[in-house]
């Protein structure tokens, strides 16, 4: 399968602030990819680079095999909903659908109108008078109805109520199945991503910490409990993500491709949320370690 998003050494700097550092990624197609990280980690920067709203300071990024936003054909293949779900406040819902129809050759008007009806939006209502959630749904409708191959969503569910959230993710998963649509969406709510995503990227302090298919990530991470031990004495193929020690006992989160054979350790699988939290609270890695996630991603 080809990659929907491929980057190497991608960096973005705003003045003296490094927003994204040396990001090397390859997201395969056919996935719903979750991009998680704390506030200010660089999620929006990465997504804006992917749709060409930003130019990288260094490095390369290719989306669906092309330069982001390099041509109207490229634009037609990628749908994007920006973080604050911008809409034209003075234009009505119907105007926004017309906008989409006029500006996108592959516009699916039937899909757009069906979604608007399902959502119970009044076509004559001005976008400026709608709630944040309704605006998000409108922006998403525009992005979906242009029939993109890749849909990029920046915090799309932040302003939705829990019910709308579940429906939204449902629609998203259906769309991926029916339209052979790939999705990249950012969030800091892991619980929401857990339901929909089958690929995960963890971004912390402008660097990619973890990237891979969710199943595989869950299969290779173990929560180990055992007698207090010296970290240096652990097997070489164990990568310790987090460790906590009491006087007699150590609790480790370990990444390893093989099984945990040592009977001294009680091995448990870990939930996605705990896994992500462990990576997010990990101290800044040494430069040598940053290669690991990218190797993982390219596998």
């Amino acid at each position: 399968m080809t990659a929907v998003l491929e980057s190497s050494g991608l960096s973005k700097r705003y003045g003296r602030r490094q927003a994204l550092t040396d990001c090397t990624l390859s997201i395969p197609s056919g996935h719903v990819t979750g991009l998680v990280g704390p506030n200010g980690a660089g999620k929006t920067t990465l997504l804006n680079l992917a749709v060409g709203l930003l130019q990288p300071t260094s490095g390369k990024i290719e989306v669906l095999g092309g330069q982001p936003a390099s041509s109207s054909e490229q634009l037609a293949r990628v749908g994007f909903v920006a973080q604050d779900t911008p809409t034209y406040g003075g234009l009505s819902v119907a105007d926004h659908l017309k906008l989409g129809a006029h500006m996108n050759p592959g516009w699916d008007n039937e899909l757009a109108e069906r979604r608007i009806t399902q959502l119970g939006l009044d076509p004559a209502q001005k976008a400026g008078k709608m709630s944040g959630g309704q605006r998000a749904q409108l922006a998403l409708t525009l992005a979906v109805a242009k029939r993109p191959e890749l849909l990029i969503l920046d915090e799309p569910i932040a302003s939705l109520d829990p019910l709308a959230r579940r429906e939204f993710l449902q629609v998203l998963m259906e769309a991926t199945a029916e339209q052979e649509l790939s999705v990249v969406m950012s969030s800091h709510l892991v619980s929401d991503l857990e339901r929909a995503c089958d690929y995960l990227i963890v971004l912390v302090a402008s660097r990619v910490r973890l990237a891979g298919e969710v199943d595989q990530l869950l299969a290779t991470h173990w929560q180990l409990t055992g007698p207090r031990c010296d970290p240096a004495a652990l097997p070489d193929d164990w990568q310790v993500i987090s460790a906590s020690h009491t006087d007699r006992q150590s609790t480790l989160l370990v990444r390893t491709s093989g099984p945990v054979a040592d009977p001294a350790w009680a091995a448990d699988h870990i939930g996605l949320e705990d896994l992500v939290l462990a990576y997010m609270s990990q101290p800044a890695p040494q430069p040598a370690r940053t290669a690991t996630p990218s190797m993982e991603a390219q596998r």
């Binding site: 709203l53 041509s71 109207s72 994007f80 920006a82 034209y88 406040g89 500006m103 050759p105 525009l142």
Partner: peptide, 17 residues
């Protein structure tokens, strides 16, 4: 100011146009 250029620039119309 309203961020709507992000919406407009992600329709299938290049920003040159």
């Amino acid at each position: 100011e309203t961020g709507t250029f992000r919406l407009a620039w992600n329709q299938s119309v290049s920003r040159y146009r």
